[in-house]
Each structure stands twice: as structure tokens, then as C-alpha cells.
Amino acid sequence: MVPMVSRAVKVKPATSPAGNKRSGGFTLLELLLVLALAAIMMVLVPMKVSSALPGTQLKSAARELAAGLRYARTHALISREESTLVLDTEKRNFRVSGRNRVYSIPASVDIDMLTAESETRGDHVGGIRFFPDGGSTGGRITVSHGERGFGVDVDWLTGKVRILDVEPEG
């Protein structure tokens, strides 16, 4: 085994070129540079976030519609009675059987619905109905913005709800 030897080491304080001791603070120039960079970031970051907002609203709308459809299916299975999601494309909202709440869809999102003729209620209102056995009338709700779109599909046989990437109709 090697014996350990301890040794004291002297550290010299930092000095400036003029030989004066320097403190550990920042210069005024360094502080102004950091403030300028922070100001630039405060201007640029919100611009990036706002340009991504329509895509976020689009995905959120698709997820909210899918959640509403899944709730309607679950409600039909548990309560043993039919349950419906009713969508109004003109007023940009939907509601689900068993809930009093009206869900709104952002104005930046385009909506289109394909459903069974028996579930249409005028030009702008339609629904997707779920049955106690798990089946449904089926259909698709498409939400889009610009070049991006999502289809919220409901299988008529199983009532399964899926969100798919789709190309918006031109």
C-alpha cells in the first residue's frame, strides 16, 4: 500500500492586466449584451409559437371530437341505451348524449362530416349514433387547416373511434 501524502497548494487571486485584483462580477457591457439577447428572444419566440397555433388547435379539435365519440360509445354500452354525438358545422360546436356541456371548435379549423342519412338534421347538423351492443351508424368527421387534416373515423360495426391523418379536400 502506498502512503498518502497531503500537500498544500496556494492559489493566486485573478488580476487584471494592470495588476489590480479583479472581482467576480459582470461588466456593464456583458449585462447589456444579455439584455439585448433577451429582448430579441422575447420578440421572436411568440412569433414562432403563434405560427404553430393553428396546427395545435387542429390536433386538439380532432382529439376532443374523438374523446366525445368515445364517451358516447361508452355511455351507450354502460347505460344500455343509444347515445349520440351531434355536430353543428355552422355553429362550430358539438354535444354528446348524457352531458349538458356544449363543446366548441376553433374558427381556424374547417369541419366536414360524413354520416348516415338517417342522422342528418338539416344542412349543417348531423350525428353519429352508438348502440348498446357497441355498434354505431358510423361516419367520419374531418377537421382541417390549410394543407393538414385529421379524420376522426367511427367504424359502424364495432363503434371503434380512430384519428387518421388525411389530405384536406381542395
Rank of each mutant, 00 (worst) to 15 (best):
A38Y: 07
Y103L: 11
V43T: 12
I40R: 03
F26N: 10
T56A: 13
V152D: 00
K21D: 06
R162A: 10
S144G: 13
A38K: 09
L114E: 14
V9S: 05
R140S: 09
E117L: 15
K21Y: 12
H124T: 14
L65G: 02
R129Q: 00
F94W: 02
Y103Q: 05
V125H: 07
Y71D: 11
P168T: 14
D153L: 14
L85G: 01
V2E: 14
G19P: 03
L69H: 01
L35D: 03
T137P: 01
F94A: 01
N100T: 08
V9E: 10
Y103M: 13
L28P: 03
K12G: 05
M1A: 14
R22V: 15
M41R: 07
D165P: 04
T115H: 05
K10C: 09
T115M: 11
S83G: 14
L44P: 01
G98D: 04
E30H: 05
A107I: 13
Y71G: 04
D110N: 13
T74P: 02
H124F: 13
T84M: 02
G146D: 10
S118I: 15
A14W: 03
E119Y: 01
H145P: 07
P3Q: 14
G25N: 09
L35S: 07
G127I: 12
V11W: 09
M1D: 14
G170L: 09
S144T: 10
G127D: 01
S23D: 14
V161M: 09
P106A: 00
L35T: 11
G122C: 12
A14M: 12
V2Y: 13
P54M: 05
S104C: 02
D88G: 09
R7D: 06
A107H: 06
E119C: 05
G135D: 04
I40T: 15
Y103K: 02
P54W: 04
V49K: 03
T137Q: 00
N93H: 05
V109N: 08
F26A: 10
E64R: 08
R7I: 11
L31K: 11
N20M: 09
L29G: 12
L29P: 08
G98I: 04
L35Q: 04
G127C: 04
I128M: 02
S51A: 10
E147Y: 05
K21S: 09
G146Y: 08
S6G: 07
A72L: 07
S51C: 04
L87Q: 00
V96A: 12
R140L: 13
I111W: 05
N93P: 03
L157M: 13
A61D: 09
S50G: 01
P168I: 10
V109L: 07
L87V: 04
V166I: 09
L32Q: 10
L77H: 06
A61F: 06
D112K: 10
R92G: 07
S79I: 02
L65K: 03
M42P: 13
S6E: 15
S6H: 12
G159Y: 05
R7T: 08
T74F: 07
I128D: 00
R70A: 07
F94N: 00
D153R: 05
I111Y: 03
V45G: 01
A62S: 13
E117C: 02
K10H: 11
V125W: 03
V96H: 02
N93M: 02
A39W: 04
H124Y: 12
G138K: 00
P106T: 00
K59S: 09
G126H: 01
T15Y: 13
G25F: 07
T120G: 08
L37N: 07
A66Q: 14
L157W: 15
G135L: 04
T115I: 09
V9L: 15
